[in-house]
Amino acid sequence: MTLNRKSKIANQISSLAGRRLRRALALLFITLVVSTLIALWVGYQPLDLAALRTDETARTLFFRLRLPRVVMAGIIGASLALVGGALQALFRNPLAEPLTLGVSGGGAFGASLAIALGLGAKVAGTPLIFVAAFLGAGAAVLLVYHLARTGPVVLPGTLLLAGIVLNLIAGAGVVLIQYLSEYGRALQILRWMIGSLDVVGFDLLWRMLIFLVPGWIALIWAARDLHLLAVDEETAASLGVDVRHSERLVYVASSLIVGTTVAVGGQIGFVGLIVPHAVRSVFGEDVRIVLPCSFILGAAFLMLADAIARTAFGVGELPVGAITALAGGPVFLWLLRRQQRLAAI
């Protein structure tokens, strides 16, 4: 009997979260490497390794344009997917992500306000615009949360509706700001609104990372608490989680991350929805697995999406946000259909 039980437990050891995470990370790391190589390879002109060795121009093009852009796509994709996974667990809503919660809209509003006020000589990359976008994103997440919360319950349907309407309002606000600004700045806002991963050199990337890395660390640190919060708040609290503290940490970290990515790349929607969903359906629901895996798969996903944006359709570069929306919108609707129960509330 006990022998039988021992062997039963031995059979299940491989199902322990730590081992599952290790296997998943190994697999995803390979995916990331392959995706990086593909993203570096394709482009206006496919990579020519011989030219790279001999031709100075080719080398400059590769190291100043293509490589930073691919890295940028990876960083933003990883960030958005990580935030999506965290928000889904925090709000116990598989449809939550920066776009559907209005967080990226709030960030965009903050950033465009900063640009209109002339807080940045350049559109992207000045810390003040990062800060403005962070504040906008933070205000949005607090507003949506308070609208959807009644007592201890966050109504899942109300949360999404409030988020999407907030996004529309913020979008209208951005347009208004653009019309009221002087011509040069309006053009800056327009260019930035379209959302692109255009980047020259690595300076901007370093500046972004100053804001992003603390956010990443905070969310990974909170993964264990989010794993319990994904069940319900009372359960998490009874298992020793300081719920209010974790909530605040996740808000601040998410706003920081989304604000920064929006300030640089504009609104890129649905990465935070598709990627964690894919991770969950393959590697299970454990949030401590979902967050790090979403981070890596998110990087791979946006690099490939950007590779498609750069090369497909033969019409020059598409905004990568269009690709992710085309891929993610239908996934959202399909999930909504599956979660009728949720949407009804």
Binding site: A17, R92, A230, V231, T235, R280, G284, E285, L342
Partner: peptide, 12 residues
């Protein structure tokens, strides 16, 4: 809301 397995739930 999330389809945790019973094992995951109890291990929490």
């Amino acid at each position: 809301v999330f389809p945790f397995t019973v094992r995951e739930m109890v291990l929490m």
